[in-house]
């Protein structure tokens, strides 16, 4: 086992911290998430470590619980996006021909529409619940995963070991999951880190615009929205969730970089 480089260690530590807080949020948060406990926009103090928000709820508790929502939605949407995107992408690359053309052009079509606008349109006609939110985000994002996995897989699909499997008479399942997927994994894993961060930003943007997580449930984008008016008066409440988003993004990227580095040194990776 090679020693883990320092940036990756920092990334792992901060990411781990975020995940831990997200999982145990209800036990860690000092106050209830939507309980009014103080005055409007109280400054940081011994009782309220980060102060209170626009209607007097404890900001730290809201950040912790909001993190749980944001991270959960982002992870779920990444999973949806990866499962759909990579399976369809690998399938398209292996099958080829007009099926591949049809799928790829359809993906081009979807990608031609700005994702945010597409999501806003869909969410404004659908009931905004967490599952709908996850599905919409995941499916829209799967177009990008589709492109990446199709590109990686078409490189691998022409290798002789894939030809050998086809000559042996193997079915499509074996070719996709046993011959191609293990060799396509390392760029996909690195991409997963990136996609997760985009999901965090995406759900925060949607909440900020009022079409994401609905109040009184907290999430980071929503907290920014609720407290944005305070900035005019020099109250930093809106900046705190922004800092949380930035910290999470950077640390996940540090980890993803390290994973890519580590796996691509084996044969079959992006830099092999």
């Amino acid at each position: 086992m090679r020693s883990i480089p320092l940036p990756a260690l920092i990334g792992l530590f901060i990411t781990g911290l975020f995940l831990f807080t997200a999982v145990f949020a209800p036990w860690i948060a000092p106050y209830g998430v939507s309980k009014v406990v103080g005055d409007v926009w109280e400054p940081a103090s011994g009782t309220f470590w980060l102060g209170t928000d626009n209607i007097g709820r404890d900001l730290l508790s809201r950040l912790i619980c909001g993190g749980q929502t944001t991270i959960f939605v982002a992870i779920a949407a990444t999973v949806v996006s990866f499962v759909t995107g990579s399976i369809l992408g690998l399938f398209a690359a292996v099958v080829g021909g007009w099926i591949d053309q049809l799928m790829s052009r359809f993906v081009d079509l979807v990608m031609a529409i700005p994702t945010l606008i597409f999501a806003l349109v869909v969410l404004s006609v659908m009931p905004v619940t967490i599952p709908v939110l996850i599905l919409v985000m995941g499916l829209l994002d799967s177009t990008r995963v589709f492109r990446l996995s199709r590109a990686v897989a078409s490189d691998i699909a022409v290798m002789e070991y894939v030809e050998a499997a086809r000559l042996r008479g193997e079915g499509r399942g074996w070719v996709i999951f046993r011959e191609i997927l293990p060799n396509a994994l390392s760029p996909l894993v690195a991409e997963a880190g990136m996609r997760f961060i985009f999901m965090v930003l995406f759900v925060s943007t949607l909440s900020f615009l009022g079409l994401g997580v609905q109040p009184p449930a907290a999430d980071w984008g929503g907290i920014v929205k609720e407290n944005k008016d305070g900035i005019v008066y020099g109250i930093p409440a809106a900046l705190l969730p922004a800092i949380a988003i930035a910290a999470l993004s950077i640390s996940v990227n540090l980890v993803a970089d390290w994973v890519l580095d580590r796996t691509s040194s084996l044969k079959g990776g992006r830099n092999a």
Partner: peptide
Amino acid sequence: LQMIYQMADTAMNPRQ
């Protein structure tokens, strides 16, 4: 009917 290739490198899945 089996086949053996020129480049043994690419004829074997590097992850198997």
